[in-house]
Design a protein around this nucleic acid. Structure first.
Length: 202
DNA sequence: CAGCTGATCAACT
DNA sequence: GTTGATCAGCTGC
C-alpha cells in the first residue's frame, strides 16, 4: 500500500522533525511517463532565517532562494559548485523558508533508467549516494524548482517502518562556515545503509 | 586509503 | 574576483 504524503505533512512547523520522518519514505519522479524512485536514507534540515547554514539566513531573499519562501510541499532545487543540482523539500508555511535536503536514496524502481542517467552499467552503492547523485539518478534539475510534490515529483509512504535506533542524528556535512550552527544535529540517516554519504555510517 | 583537483555558476565582497 | 548544502578521478603512500 502506497500513500502520497499530502501538503499538510510538509506544512508542519518543525523542519527537524520532518527531516527525521522522511527517512524511509519513497521519493519518486515521473518524467515523460518514466518512473524512477528510491527510499530516502539520508536528509538534512535547514532551519530558515536563524540558521547560518541556510541560504535564507537572516531572511536573505534572491531569485534563487525565492521558492524556499513558498508554503511547504514544493521542490527547491538549486545549482551547487556549478554542476550539482541539489534537491530540497520546502516545509512550513508560506514566508517561513525552511527546507529539507535529500542527501541519499536507495534505488527502488526504474533502476535501468537511473543507471543510464548516472552513466553506469551496474547498480552499486554510489547510485543515489550524496545530494548531487540523488538528483542525477532521479532526473531532477533546477528547472523543477518550485514544482509541487503532488505531481511529477512526489513522496510516498509504503508502510516501511524503521526502528528508532536505526535512525541516527549527526551534524550536517560541508557547512563548516556556519559557526556554531555547524554542530547542530540536523542530519539524519539510516544506520548502516550503503547509500548514505560519508564514511562510518554504522 | 587519504589528499588534492577540476568542473563551472549564482551570489556576494 | 572568491566561495560554496559536491563528486569523481587521480596521485602517492
Amino acid at each position: 500500500m502506497m500513500t502520497k504524503l499530502p501538503p499538510v505533512f510538509f506544512e508542519r512547523p518543525d523542519v527537524v522533525q520532518v527531516a527525521r520522518e522522511l527517512i524511509g519514505k519513497i521519493l519518486l519522479t515521473r518524467f515523460d511517463g518514466i518512473v524512477t524512485s528510491g527510499r530516502i536514507v539520508e536528509t538534512e534540515a535547514y532551519n530558515g532565517v536563524v540558521d547560518r547554514a541556510s541560504h535564507a539566513y537572516k531572511g536573505r531573499r534572491t531569485a534563487r532562494t525565492e521558492t524556499m519562501y513558498s508554503a511547504g510541499g514544493v521542490a527547491y532545487v538549486y545549482l551547487c559548485y556549478g554542476i550539482h543540482h541539489l534537491f530540497n523539500v520546502v516545509t512550513n508555511i508560506k514566508d517561513v523558508p525552511h527546507a529539507v535536503l535529500i542527501r541519499g536514496i536507495e534505488p527502488v524502481e526504474g533502476v535501468e533508467q537511473m543507471l543510464d542517467r548516472m552513466r553506469k552499467l551496474k547498480l552499486d552503492h554510489t547510485v543515489g549516494r550524496g545530494p548531487g547523485n540523488v538528483s542525477r539518478a532521479l532526473g531532477i534539475s533546477t528547472e523543477h524548482t518550485g514544482n509541487s510534490l503532488q505531481e511529477e515529483i512526489s513522496i510516498w509512504d509504503d508502510g516501511f517502518v524503521l526502528k528508532p535506533s536505526d535512525i541516527i542524528a549527526s551534524p550536517r556535512i560541508g557547512i563548516d562556515y556556519a559557526g556554531e550552527d555547524a554542530t547542530l544535529p540536523y542530519r539524519f540517516y539510516q544506520k548502516g545503509n550503503r547509500h548514505v554519504s560519508g564514511k562510518g555510517n554504522k
